[in-house]
């Protein structure tokens, strides 16, 4: 695999506010990266640096061995940003045809319309499309340059289930072709399913870089769910318990030490029903981690 993005000790600040603090990052061909973090964690700034819209205060950053923002780097990057692209007075085909002329070796509008199944509304004006259809058009725009690196920001917002499935299948095809994909999304279950690696930004630093499995192992959080007539407070101080939530007699315990917590639950077993034990999802780990940072 070839390195596409290489960052060493990358820092950026707005005045006295340190937004990114000595980040090291390597992204290679064929990787799907999930970039997550709370609002204000530095995701926007990092993307702007990678796209060459902003320049780092210190550190090194190359994208395709080029300075970010150079014409050569721009040719190889496709971006699906948050704008709706509901441009008045033009059709899908007209937008894609114009967009293609901004790149030296683009895919044709017709090819993308067929590949991404846009034919049904290709001749419709953009303002007549639904939110999900517009996201699909924005995805087509991101692919028009036939890029080797894709930035996807909240890519499936507004898409129906079928469109979402088709979208993630297309991402897997792109991955198989050796394209790298960086996804930022607040919808973490998707990131959990598709990302090869997760980058968790917290206060300008990577709180975690690695696979989801590693993240689960490192934080070893499990969720034990059961039904009981006992009040939730009964379980607050059991060994390993980090959080107890409950509603209508269904109690959910988060534990950082599964064995210890299960051992502590033994005296109550007669009063517990439908016990299930699950690893925490990315969303739950994310909440734990960010809550921990604030505490």
């Amino acid at each position: 695999m070839t390195t596409i993005i290489q960052a060493k000790q990358l820092s950026f600040s707005y005045g006295k506010h340190q937004v990114l603090d000595k980040l090291d990052l390597t992204i290679k061909t064929g990787e799907i990266i999930g970039l997550i973090g709370e609002n204000g964690a530095g995701k926007t700034t990092l993307l702007n640096l990678l796209l060459g819209v902003r320049t780092a205060d210190s550190g090194e950053l190359t994208v395709f061995d080029q300075t970010p923002g150079s014409a050569l780097a721009k040719q190889k990057i496709g971006s699906m940003l948050q704008g709706d692209m509901a441009i008045r007075g033009v059709t899908v085909t007209e937008l894609l045809t114009m967009a293609a002329t901004n790149y030296p070796a683009p895919l044709s509008a017709a090819t993308l319309i067929t590949t991404l199944d846009l034919t049904a509304f290709a001749q419709q004006q953009l303002t007549a499309l639904s939110g999900g259809q517009l996201r699909r058009v924005t995805f087509a725009l991101a692919l028009i340059s036939n890029p080797d690196l894709l930035f996807l920001d909240e890519p499936t917002v507004g898409m129906d289930t079928n469109a979402q499935q088709a979208f993630w299948q297309r991402i897997q095809v792109l991955k198989a072709q050796g394209k790298a994909v960086i996804i930022t999304s607040h919808y973490l279950p998707e990131i959990e399913q598709v990302a090869d690696r997760i980058l968790l930004l917290q206060d300008g630093r990577f709180a975690f870089q690695g696979t989801f499995a590693t993240l689960q192992q490192r934080y070893q959080q499990v969720v034990i769910t059961f039904q009981t007539a006992l009040p939730g407070s009964t379980f607050d101080h059991l060994a390993g318990v980090t959080a107890v939530t409950g509603r209508h007699q269904t109690i959910k315990i988060s534990s950082e030490d599964r064995d210890a917590t299960l051992q502590a639950l033994v005296p109550y077993l007669a009063q517990l029903q439908q016990v299930t034990i699950n690893r925490e999802s990315l969303s739950e780990i994310f909440v734990q981690l960010t809550k921990g940072a604030k505490a």
């Binding site: 819209v53 014409a71 721009k74 971006s79 940003l81 948050q82 692209m85 441009i87 901004n102 790149y103």
Partner: peptide, 17 residues
Amino acid sequence: MHDREQGLLQWLQLTPT
């Protein structure tokens, strides 16, 4: 303003042109 709001200007800014 419409082009800026809808993201067309952003998109163009990130192209080589």
